[in-house]
């Protein structure tokens, strides 16, 4: 027993290293454990509290620039609105004639991004809303340019979002106008890959990519990006499309969470 103690004492740094590696690996392998989620949720609230003043200062400094942009956008939108109102009335009248079922509108919760993690590559960000605001796990997060992620860990006052550029993020998408569906995953530099596309799908550069709706998380027709490249290898049974994401993850300051539950399409 004493000799074992002496061996441990002699090689204590190797022993501690071994222990640290074992613990780290056990965390890595138990990423989906509810206990880990619970602890991360608590820590997320704590870090959001620390981050709040910094995020407030950052937002204030951006405010003037943002106000200017919003004013310009407001004028443009006011001009567009007039024609849309006329179109809307006409659309409503025609839908009534066709007895068309009204589509449910999305309930959006605005949120500020208070932290983007501390790792050397962005794979998540923290929002300043949580359980108290009605946020739940697995709800879509988007910006006007497109989907940016989904809620992963929800604390009382903050939420960690798994961003679209996380290695484990997948999204079912549809390419328009062809209607081809595939599975999207992030590649690098705001470029994503759509896999599982049918070989005979008519996909072209410049086609719009939207969420397919085959999901309980993402409603259909949310913008994602635009096709920039098509990889069609002769030996492969499927086609791969590369797209440029609409949203720039590294520069977003605020986002929206889609509240409520969706029914998966069959």
């Amino acid at each position: 027993m004493r000799s074992l103690y002496l061996v441990l004492l002699k090689y204590k740094d190797h022993f501690v290293f071994f222990l640290a590696v074992i613990l780290s690996l056990s965390f890595l392998l138990r990423n989906d454990s509810p206990n880990i989620y619970l602890i991360r949720g608590k820590f997320s609230d704590f870090f959001s509290f620390i981050n709040y003043p910094i995020s407030w200062v950052k937002n204030m400094s951006q405010l003037q620039h943002e106000t200017q942009l919003l004013r310009e956008k407001n004028i443009q939108l006011s001009l567009q609105l007039e024609s849309f109102l006329v179109d809307h009335e006409e659309n409503k009248r025609l839908k009534e004639l066709l007895n068309y079922r009204r589509e449910s509108s999305l309930e959006l919760l605005p949120a500020k991004i208070i932290n983007m993690g501390s790792s050397s590559n962005i794979s998540s960000f923290t929002l300043d809303v949580g359980l108290n605001n009605g946020v739940r796990v697995n709800q879509a997060v988007l910006v006007p340019q497109g989907i940016v992620g989904k809620t992963l860990i929800v604390g009382n006052t903050s939420t960690i979002v798994q961003s679209i550029n996380d290695v484990n993020f997948r999204l079912s998408v549809r390419i328009y106008p062809s209607g081809a569906t595939g599975i999207l995953r992030y590649l690098v530099n705001d470029i994503c890959e759509i896999r599982e596309l049918q070989k005979n799908a008519n996909v072209n550069v410049g086609d719009k990519v939207l969420s397919s709706g085959f999901s309980t998380i993402y409603p259909e027709n949310l913008p994602v990006g635009e096709v920039t490249q098509i990889l069609d290898e002769r030996g492969s049974f499927q086609k791969v499309a590369r797209i440029k994401m609409g949203a720039n993850i590294s520069s977003i300051l605020s986002a929206f969470v889609i509240l409520g539950e969706l029914d998966a399409k069959k």
């Binding site: 290293f17 640290a20 590696v21 613990l23 780290s24 690996l25 056990s26 965390f27 890595l28 990423n31 880990i36 602890i39 991360r40 820590f43 997320s44 870090f47 932290n115 983007m116 993690g117 501390s118 790792s119 794979s123 998540s124 960000f125 923290t126 992620g149 992963l152 960690i160 979002v161 798994q162 961003s163 996380d166 290695v167 484990n168 993020f169």
Partner: peptide, 24 residues
């Protein structure tokens, strides 16, 4: 290990535990 763990707690999408592993 401690610093890596705190870093991962501050926000990481997946692979919680990667920072303590690589830093150790």
């Amino acid at each position: 290990f401690i610093v890596g763990l705190i870093s991962d707690f501050s926000g990481v999408g997946s692979y919680f535990g990667l920072s303590p592993l690589s830093l150790s």
